[in-house]
Design a protein around this nucleic acid. Structure first.
Length: 171
DNA sequence: TGCACGATCTCG
DNA sequence: GAGATCGTGCAT
């Protein structure tokens, strides 16, 4: 059984390669009291570049989206509906804004519930998934099949972008 | 300086 | 089916 922590090489590829690649990987969260949570990633969505009207970076470089312009392997979190933090992983190369939204784990389904249960908030903005000892991703060598679908909650993005099959979920 | 709205969830 | 609840972006 070879368990390995994903490094920057995994994240610094196109988001459409990274997103499906995350399905079946394990999200590990070590709390301040030392307890460890480990869950398999089962559903994600890809947000790709300034031209993607569903991506926050479509509004350009702002204090909020700045982190997506960094090289992949760091965390992008933001508050939605005034109460839920959304967990995203930045992917791709520098100055190429992309991110993967983590929508579901085998044990916790729902993007808002994941951050609530794993105690992830704004303080995780910009945290490295490679260097942090609080959160990282592991590969157990498990190979899974996945399904694709359209992204959730972006009706405002227009026909072209909201119909992209950029949601990936485990089969 | 103000305002409308959102990559959601829970309750009725 | 609606309310909670607030940072962000864009219009004043």
């Amino acid at each position: 059984m070879s368990v390995k922590k994903l490094d920057y090489n995994f994240y610094r590829r196109d988001v459409l390669e990274v997103a499906p690649g995350l399905i079946g990987k394990f999200l590990v969260r070590k709390f301040d009291d030392g307890k460890v949570f480990r869950g398999m990633i089962t559903e994600v969505e890809a947000y790709r570049g300034e031209e993607d009207l569903g991506c926050h970076a479509s509004k350009g470089r702002t204090s909020r989206t700045e982190i997506m312009y960094q090289a992949g392997g760091v965390i992008y979190v933001y508050l939605i509906y005034g109460m839920y933090w959304m967990l995203n992983f930045v992917t791709g190369l520098k100055d190429n804004p992309q991110a993967v939204l983590i929508r579901g784990l085998d044990k916790i389904w729902g993007p808002g519930k994941i951050t609530r249960d794993l105690k992830i908030d704004g303080s995780f903005y910009g945290v490295s998934l490679v260097d942090s000892d609080k959160i990282w991703i592991e590969d157990d060598g498990i190979v899974v099949n996945y399904l694709t679908g359209t992204r959730i909650g972006i009706d405002y993005a227009g026909e072209v972008w909201k119909n992209k099959m950029w949601r990936f979920s485990i089969k």
